[in-house]
Structures are given as structure tokens and as C-alpha cells.
Design a protein around this nucleic acid. Structure first.
Lengths: 197, 197
DNA sequence: GACGTTTTTCATCATGTGTTGAATTGTGCT
DNA sequence: AGCACAATTCAACACATGATGAAAAACGTC
């Protein structure tokens, strides 16, 4: 924010690197990959663009550094699956919301989702994430026809995440997690184990 | 595709304008607004970039020309609402899918959604589209607490649209519309008129 | 066939971007 | 005090992009 003029190292021991990373995170989360410029990140961190390159190399490198998703979806979902099909819908949603509501993780996750939308990461979600990562895990929960049930679950989950975190639809974004769980849990439960035509 | 060298007007009566527009549509749909360059559109239409500017003015103008959503959501939704709450979930979804499955309308709609995602059209969806356009219409269907019910409906609808049309999740994209209606309709019905905690 | 009009390309500009290398200033070690 | 090293900025390059104005080729009309 404040104008810096002098050249060379700053006095004190400011963790400039962390500030740059934070600025990059929020910018990627808000404007996506192409919408984020290194110059804007640098400006928002009160720093010269060259410093961004000095710490993190290219823009791609900065992006992966900004994501840093310290969450293995399989590890997170494992307990949900292990507890069996009863009440799995609510447990699944509760787990998911607890991860996304963590303020440490949220910007990275939002940035990831945004970039998956705009650049052709759609293919990645379609061919990689759903069938390879989350599909097999949830497959342990459903009694039959996983190829029908899993996408239905995915559609409702995607909708919640987009509405609550990316678009921040007011009532959805402010709704207490437990209310959401109570309201949407049954939907997921039906998709997972209910009677489907 | 073929290399054109000669200057001036082409022989015959090719509708180059339409070709440019089509190229713009698919590019906007696939790569979003920022991901689309005028030069790429021109190349894909086998045309000089200046021609794109000649027909449609600035890039923004080209974008709105490419959208051309000849669909007024309120007009489309009106009959759904008029028929009353019984079976509204299925009717709503059926209507929606019939619009999106129309190959004329699809690229424009996908492009619109993509751009709403990446640029900060999120605000537009949040503050404009949902509360102003679709909210009041659907409000005629719900018995109480619209501020809870409408966003839930929105979340499931958004998820379906993203899964089926934007990401093109395989089983969701290929599923016959009526199967989807039968499977997801009850969810919407519950969000609209069911017992919610 | 002459002529105005439309369609098309060429050449060019200004701007914003990612990236690089050198220069400057502070910090910590000996 | 001296010196290697890290942190930081400056200046600049190469490139892609959106945009503009003028010129060339085909068409339609009289």
C-alpha cells in the first residue's frame, strides 16, 4: 500500500515472500489464472514485479505455489466411507464443508476451482479428478449403478461449492454448515443409496 | 483453414460474417472471454483480424454479439410457475434441459456461464441474475422461506448445468433428459415445497 | 463499361505482459 | 572491519494483443 522508493534490502525482517504468496493466492482465487498478472500481484504486495520472479520462478510456478492444497481428498473421504452407508450423505457434506470453511485452505481451493473452469481444466475434472480420485472412494458406498449415482452426487456437491464459495450466493454463503447439512444431506443420501429410476 | 493471400473482396458470396461469429461463439464457449483472442477467432475463420473489427466493433461488442441469448428466462419459466407447485420440480428441470439441449442456444449459454465464472461476473450472478430475474419468478412456487429454498434450488441447478454442459461429465452429459428429470426432479421438488429443517 | 459500395487485407501503433540481468542496500559471519 | 550472501529495485527486451486507417479487389447498378 505505502509507496516504497529506496532500492535494496529493506530494514527489519519482513516476510515479504509470504506477503507475495498471499497476494497471489487471493488474486488467483478472485480473477483466475489469466486474470491474474504478476504486476498486479507485485503491486498488491507492495513489491517490484521482479521480486515475484526472484522468489517463485515463472507464472506457472507461482500458480502451483499458490495452490498448495494440503488436502488429500482420498484421506479426507476415507472416514466417511469407512462408517458405512447409513447417514453417509450428511457425513459427506459435513466433511466437505469443514474443509472448505477452513480459512487457510479456502483461497487455494477457490483458485483451483476457478482455474479448472476457465482454462481447459474441465477436461482434468472430467477425465482425472472425478473418475480417478473421488469416484473409486465413493464407489465403496453405493449399492449399485455407481456410474449413475456418483455424477448425481457430484452435481449437487459442485452446485453447493460454487454457490457457497465461488459465487458466494448470499443465503448459501452465510448459512451455518449444520443447516446446510440438514437440508442437503438427504439429497446426497438419496443419490448415494436411495431408490433411483 | 486454407491459406488466403489475395487482397480485397473474395469471389462468390461467402457469408464470412457468419463464419466469424460462429468461430467467436465456440472460442468464447471453450476458453472464456480472456482466453479468446481476436486473432485466434480470425485465424479460425480464415480471415484477417481487421475484418473482425470491421464487422463487430470492439472485443466486448463481439462478445455480446456472440452471446445473443434469445431466451428470456422469465418467459421460459412462466408456464412452469403457472402450472402450480405440484410436479414443479420435474417441470422446472425439463424446461431447463430443453433450453440447454437446443444446439442453437448451447454455445452462447456455455460461453455466458464460463465468462460469469472467470471474470467477476460472479457478482452479477449473485446480485443480479438470481435475486432479480429468477428469484421473483420462482417465488410464486414456494410456500415459505424463499430465501432458503431458492438458493438450494439454484445450487442443484447450477451443479447440473456445470456437470452436464460445461464440464461435460460423461454419464451426466449423455444421460437422456427424461432420466435426469426423473432422478433429480424429486430433489428440486423437495427444495421447493418439501419439509426443510 | 463506369462508378460507388461492400468486403477484405496490409501495415502499423500503443499498450500490457512475462521475463531477465545488472545494480543497490541491508544482514550475518568471522 | 570486512566480506559473502540475500533481498530488493531499475531498466529494458521480446512478444502478444486490441485497435485503426488506408489500400486493393470483387460486386451491384445505371
Amino acid at each position: 500500500m505505502t509507496a516504497r522508493t529506496s532500492r535494496g534490502r529493506r530494514p527489519g525482517a519482513p516476510d515479504t515472500r509470504a506477503e507475495v504468496l498471499a497476494a497471489a493466492r487471493t488474486s488467483f482465487a478472485e480473477k483466475g489464472f489469466r486474470g491474474t498478472t504478476i504486476r498486479a500481484v507485485a503491486a498488491s504486495a507492495g513489491v517490484d514485479p521482479a521480486l515475484v520472479h526472484h522468489y517463485f520462478g515463472t507464472k506457472d510456478d507461482l500458480f502451483v505455489a499458490a495452490l498448495q492444497i494440503p488436502v488429500d481428498p482420498r484421506a479426507v473421504l476415507a472416514p466417511v466411507v469407512a462408517a458405512g452407508p447409513d447417514g453417509a450423505g450428511e457425513r459427506l457434506l459435513r466433511t466437505l464443508l469443514s474443509v472448505w470453511d477452513d480459512p487457510e485452505l479456502r483461497p487455494g481451493l477457490v483458485a483451483l476451482v476457478r482455474s479448472l473452469m476457465s482454462d481447459d481444466g474441465a477436461g482434468l475434472v472430467r477425465d482425472g479428478f472425478i473418475p480417478v480420485v473421488v469416484g473409486p472412494v465413493l464407489a465403496g458406498l453405493v449399492p449399485d449403478r455407481p456410474e449413475v449415482r456418483i455424477p448425481l452426487v457430484a452435481s449437487q456437491v459442485i452446485g453447493i461449492i460454487l454457490g457457497r464459495y465461488v459465487v458466494a450466493l448470499p443465503p448459501l454463503a452465510q448459512m451455518p454448515a449444520e443447516d446446510l447439512v440438514a437440508r442437503v444431506g438427504p439429497t446426497l443420501q438419496r443419490y448415494l443409496t436411495g431408490d433411483l429410476p
